[in-house]
Design a protein around this nucleic acid. Structure first.
Length: 201
DNA sequence: CCAGGGATGGACT
DNA sequence: GTCCATCCCTGGT
């Protein structure tokens, strides 16, 4: 929990979204909600690429008030509501008007586990606490109020704890729940840590 | 104003 | 493993 480990803003400016996605594995996503610190190691992500990716909200350069955060310069978060219930968090990356983002799909709890369990009404710590995009946001206390917030803020940020994920321990697959995207649904843009138990389904 | 949709979760066998 | 309820927000009118 040392803010000196906070990832520098330039990390989020690369246009190589696939590479940035892989680099996020093993990093620590932290929130401070009403002075309660909770965090988890990122174990699973999905890349959503710009305007040519049919699975992306910004496909065909769709620019609305909802998708606007994705068009901003990298280094902020894009939160949206899914199925009317679940808040999903994306890390916006790339230059301004390069609308790409990385969905955080799973984390391994690190700090504030008790708080996370309270938010989820869990009595026993199991992987179900944070092994899904809607689950981890609830555990971390993330709501729509976090939309568009900078990762350089006091409310949410990402730390580097020098956990090295070897290239051979990064697996990929097609993305989850994007069947509507036709051919693009098959793209191998989901990345996760091999043999880690904190992975969705 | 309102119809439609959805980057899922959880309950159940 | 399978099934299906979910319900607020979005965006076009």
């Amino acid at each position: 929990m040392n803010s000196k480990n906070k990832i520098p803003q330039k990390f989020y400016l690369s246009d190589d979204v696939i590479n940035t996605s892989k680099l996020l594995l093993g990093k620590i996503l932290v929130t401070n909600v009403n002075n309660k610190i909770t965090s988890g190691m990122i174990t699973e992500v999905e890349a959503y690429l710009g305007i040519n990716d049919k699975a992306s909200h910004t496909y065909n350069n769709k620019r609305t008030s909802r998708t606007e955060p994705m068009f901003s310069k990298g280094g902020i978060v894009y939160i949206y509501l899914c199925y009317g219930i679940h808040h999903l968090i994306n890390i916006v990356v790339g230059k301004r008007d390069f609308p790409s983002a990385i969905l955080i799909r799973s984390i391994k709890p690190v700090d504030g586990i008790k708080t996370m369990m309270e938010r989820r009404n869990f009595k026993k710590l199991t992987k179900e606490l944070t092994n899904g995009p809607g689950k981890l946001t609830k555990a971390l206390g993330i709501t729509m109020k976090y939309n568009s917030i900078s990762l350089n803020s006091k409310k949410i940020w990402i730390e580097n704890h020098n956990i090295i994920i070897n290239k051979k321990d990064i697996l990929s697959s097609s993305r989850i729940g994007v069947d509507y995207a036709g051919e693009d649904a098959k793209l191998p843009y989901r990345f996760y840590i091999k043999n880690n138990k904190w992975i969705s389904k």
